[in-house]
Simulated assay, not measured.
Amino acid sequence: MHHGNPICLTIHEILSGDYGLILNKVDENKLITQREYNNLKSINNANAETHVIELVDKIMNKGEKTCKDFLNLLQTDGAIKETFPLLAMSSCQHGNTHVTQYRNTVRPVGLCVIINNKNFKDGSQRRGTDKDARNLAEVFKCLGFRVLMCEDLNKDQMDQALTFVASLADMSHFVDPQQVLEHGDAFICSILSHGKKGVVLGTDRNPLPIKEITRKFRGCDQSVLTGKPKVFLIQACQGSNIQHGVQLMETDDDTSPLTIPEEADVLVAMATVEDHAALRHIVDGSWFVQSLCEQLKERCPRGEDIVSILHYVNDDVAHRETSSLAKQMPEVRFTLRKKLVLPPQRT
């Protein structure tokens, strides 16, 4: 690969899916000569990505106008947009690379840690949570993550496991010592447990503040996760209040370097808002996790980013209600600086 060329590696990876379509479209729009088209088409013994690199290099060497025409073609042609939805998430400029999404090139993509607390020391069980854990593991494996499942951890064990994962220190208590663990381009942590306001509970019913969990992964000069997205998916009550439905009213809503804040690049998705319960079916699992898995399966292949997908989860869960008219409203907060896109990995 010609690393010196001003091209988006993301676009190389995306376009490799159907190189023939791109080459034909470039030819139709007269961005290359007939001779160049024939030469590119006749390259033998090369994989799709090599073909793409040759084509993009040739276009980049033709000057700024041809480069802009090529980028415009990628963003406006109907067939290309339909075939490569991920292109909507990326953009390149001649002489400079500007990517609006987080890098996602390492395989595996990163670690996904699932803490599934089902059996509590007082004898109680969170029935249905195993289905949530299985579905999450299945989805994130398909998205290219290495999944680590931790079951029935008390507060101190949760704290210890997450501390180890953050630094990738001694994880022999939780995984096979022979396994080598490495952080990739993203980190996912899902905690399925009981909870109270601002905390999740260990199996001993002792609380671990969610703020302390995310703080373990805070950016610093030594952390390989600095500048990379860290997503926390929390299925736990945040109180005992039950939410009720209200008449829908129209509302308006507005939200608004060289170094980045240490709290950057984090997303926390809570099953419910503060002070309220999170609902879980004893067979089908929780509303939040089941909706999350369904939306990830449906929308990740389309190239939609995680925040957009969580909007659909919020809306889906908000429309559900129990026979007693109980409602639930998930809550998402984030300091992500870019879009996080997680395309399924080919097996």
Rank of each mutant, 00 (worst) to 15 (best):
N119D: 07
L325E: 10
I213H: 02
T33M: 03
F164S: 15
S16A: 15
S124E: 07
L55S: 11
L87Y: 02
E54T: 04
D18H: 06
A166K: 01
H244P: 00
V224Q: 03
P177E: 10
V332Q: 00
Q295S: 13
N206F: 10
L336E: 01
Q34Y: 07
V52P: 08
K155Y: 11
A186E: 01
L181I: 02
V200W: 05
I22C: 07
K25P: 01
R333C: 08
N206Q: 11
Q75N: 09
Q290M: 11
N241F: 01
H311N: 07
Q238R: 15
N39Q: 12
L342G: 06
V180T: 11
C237H: 00
T226P: 13
P257L: 15
T255L: 12
Q75G: 08
E263H: 12
H276A: 01
D284Q: 15
K230I: 03
T255V: 08
E151F: 00
S291C: 10
V147A: 04
F70Q: 02
N45G: 05
G303N: 04
L258P: 14
E49I: 15
S16H: 08
V175Y: 10
Q125S: 09
I11A: 11
G303Y: 08
A48I: 06
A277G: 05
Q247L: 09
Q290I: 04
T163K: 08
P177H: 02
A264I: 04
V273E: 15
T10L: 13
D69H: 01
F145C: 06
Q157P: 00
I306L: 14
G17M: 07
E182M: 05
D252F: 10
Y19L: 04
R299N: 14
V283I: 15
L296F: 15
P209A: 01
K141N: 13
K58F: 11
H94T: 02
I32P: 09
A46D: 02
N44S: 14
L162S: 03
I7A: 15
P344H: 03
R127N: 10
L340G: 09
A269I: 09
G63F: 02
S324H: 12
T66Y: 09
D316R: 03
L192Y: 09
A169C: 12
E28T: 04
C150E: 07
F120C: 00
E263G: 13
K338S: 08
G198L: 06
H311F: 09
A79R: 13
M89D: 11
G184R: 03
S42T: 13
V341M: 01
L40K: 05
D170R: 03
S308T: 12
